[in-house]
Design a binder for these strands. Structure first.
Lengths: 359, 359
DNA sequence: TGGTCATTTGGAACCGATTCCAGGAGGGAG
DNA sequence: CTCCCTCCTGGAATCGGTTCCAAATGACCA
């Protein structure tokens, strides 16, 4: 049905070796022969079979991207960066989405087994020592993004510094009672970044002799529902914080929702700062700590390509910069004066029920 | 280095054919032989080479997902649904993100060429007649999502009906001057759904003898910036609409941003309704027309798996239901009192004589 | 005991490329 | 004119599976 290299060889009156050399741009092919082969290739609309090529060459030109929770916006932006770079280099990219710890273990094992891919990018997926040994034994090039292993190439942001940035911003606005909403402290799956960001916040506060009050600290589920629940609990307190730092933007949205529901105006009654600077943060005008999501994926892909070519230079650990992005959900704390209606008051739609205060 | 089927055969003292039969769960293998082979497989930690398997069997167990703009949330949710279904069925999924018309053409051509995949799902990517002929000639199973071709299996939502739903909701709240913000009318790439949704809106309005005023209609870029620009233009008008329907949630976010900037309170001064019901719409409490994004991806994947098994039943065109999801950005128009504040200060009270009527 | 048939088994052929080696053609030097 | 070296070229071997065919085995029956 579909033309093969043998068909091309026969019609061009040459051997398959010659066709292969033409296909791969190798030297040692006569000009007229090359022209004849190319003509037949065009005529037959011939494209080499990728599978056969992989089998004989031992390279699949395919990269696995293993990620947790494909639906998380920050993960998607990282994949997007990797996708562009890999596609431009002629590589295919296969997605391995893992949503449970078992799936993660299985995905990491499978990476090396069926020799299906030339390399892998792990996004927010941290290999354990056993995984590492498997990968190393198989000689599979792997680059981590937003994950860590002391012996593997990785691109990370300084989460402690980013957390401190958020803390210093709130402090500079005059906040003293600052709450924190984060991921579960020991997630079965995924990233310790939430804890690092909390640590950064605390370091910033400590410089002023302050700390996060235990009852102003909630570490629940990763998703918005978690941020919402956590924030509700904290914001219902009599001595609720005047500002909340959420370990990522998705959680921060949950905080905003809780504030809206409790009739707290943002930023007048409550400042909220997130982390990641996903697209949606810009949409709703949320202050956040920006980290280079797209770029981290692109950089990891570029590094992986270099590893595949055996050009393994550069440090194992690359720290990418974070920066504060101030929008409309942070402001000085509301001291004393009665709430005033503000046109910019809430990034979220103004609900008619937001007159009554908490309790 | 890595064990092959020949190693297993030798250690088990059987032929490669027998090992293959065991691997694939074929009958006609003696119980004791099977046990011995399985023992060796376990001992060697043997996994069959996926590439070799593909080459000899002619099936790659890989599906291509071709999508426009990998970064669009609705696209991602659809991919997520497809990913789960395909992974559970043991298929790998490769992503082909196309962001220009040329890339789209190339991606569609490549699908059939290198025999790299067993089938494809096209998300918001519409094949032209030539693409269709290529695909048909190659016998490649393909399912469309949010795209149309009269001869291909597809899952769509009734965009006209969805648009009408949005229109009727606004009408029932009492709105008479309704604006529309949509995608460019003739996108080089992508979907005509924006136009269909506008048509639905007009049909709903026509039932009341109304229409969208030409200067209340803006079709700009797909992304938020487009929605923002379009909305700014419309909302600065003296006779600005009391409600805006945006062809998708991303555009609607741009409308919200423009409203915020102009000092228009939502929903008091302006109602906004989107389309898609992406996660972020829930985050900010936006009223929207819900369509089953995840489910459409999952359904398409399930259908594709059936096509691969030769069980091609069911209609070519499957229409999935939409439904109105009312949140906090729509309300009756503000008739009595003047707006609290307005950037341009015109703040003309809504006068019912102002309705734009169908000629 | 011999014949028939179903089941089990080994291994060659094949999938479609790449790669390597040997042989042929052509050009330059002696 | 011969020899040698370089450059082209054809085709067999190879990658690691699946599949098919023929042969071996064993059960059953006359």
């Amino acid at each position: 049905m579909v033309a093969t290299i043998a068909d091309v060889a026969r019609l061009a009156g040459v051997g398959v070796g010659t066709v292969s050399r033409v296909l791969n741009g190798r030297p040692n092919v006569g000009a007229s022969t090359r022209a004849r082969v190319l003509a037949v290739i065009t005529e037959l609309d011939y494209v080499p079979n990728a599978t056969a090529r992989s089998l004989s060459s031992g390279r699949t030109r395919t990269i696995a991207v293993v990620c947790i929770h494909f639906i998380i916006p920050s993960v998607i932006e990282r994949i997007h960066g990797a996708e562009r770079t890999l596609t431009d280099a002629g590589f295919d990219l296969i997605i391995r989405n893992v949503e449970t710890a078992e799936r993660r273990d299985q995905a990491l094992r499978d990476l090396t087994h069926a020799e299906r891919v030339d390399g892998a990018i792990l996004i927010s997926v941290t290999p354990n020592e056993q995984d590492y040994q498997h990968i190393r034994a198989a000689g599979l090039p792997v680059v981590l993004v937003d994950a860590s292993h002391r012996s593997m190439a990785r691109f990370v942001c300084d989460d402690v510094e980013g957390g401190a940035t958020a803390g210093r911003h709130l402090l500079s606005l005059g906040h003293r009672r600052i709450g924190f909403v984060g991921d579960p402290p020991r997630p079965s799956l995924g990233v310790p970044s939430s804890r690092s960001r909390l640590r950064g916040l605390r370091e910033a506060l400590a410089e002023q002799g302050l700390d996060v009050a235990p009852h102003h600290l909630a570490e629940g589920e990763h998703f918005r529902a978690g941020g919402y629940e956590s924030a509700l609990r904290i914001l219902k307190l009599k001595d609720r914080p005047t500002a909340v730092f959420a370990a990522n933007d998705t959680l921060a949205f949950g905080v905003l929702q809780a504030a809206r529901e409790l009739g707290l105006r943002v930023p007048t009654d409550l400042s909220v700062i997130g982390y990641d600077d996903i697209d949606a943060a810009d949409l709703v005008g949320m202050t956040t700590v920006h980290q280079p999501l797209y770029d981290s994926g692109a950089a990891a892909a570029a590094r992986l390509l270099r590893l595949l070519n055996g050009q393994d230079h550069g440090p194992l650990r690359t720290v990418m910069p974070t920066r504060l992005t101030v929008r409309e959900t942070t402001a000085p704390p509301n001291t004393g004066t009665a709430p005033v209606k503000s046109i910019h008051g809430s990034s979220a739609p103004v609900s008619s029920s937001n007159h009554h205060r908490v309790r």
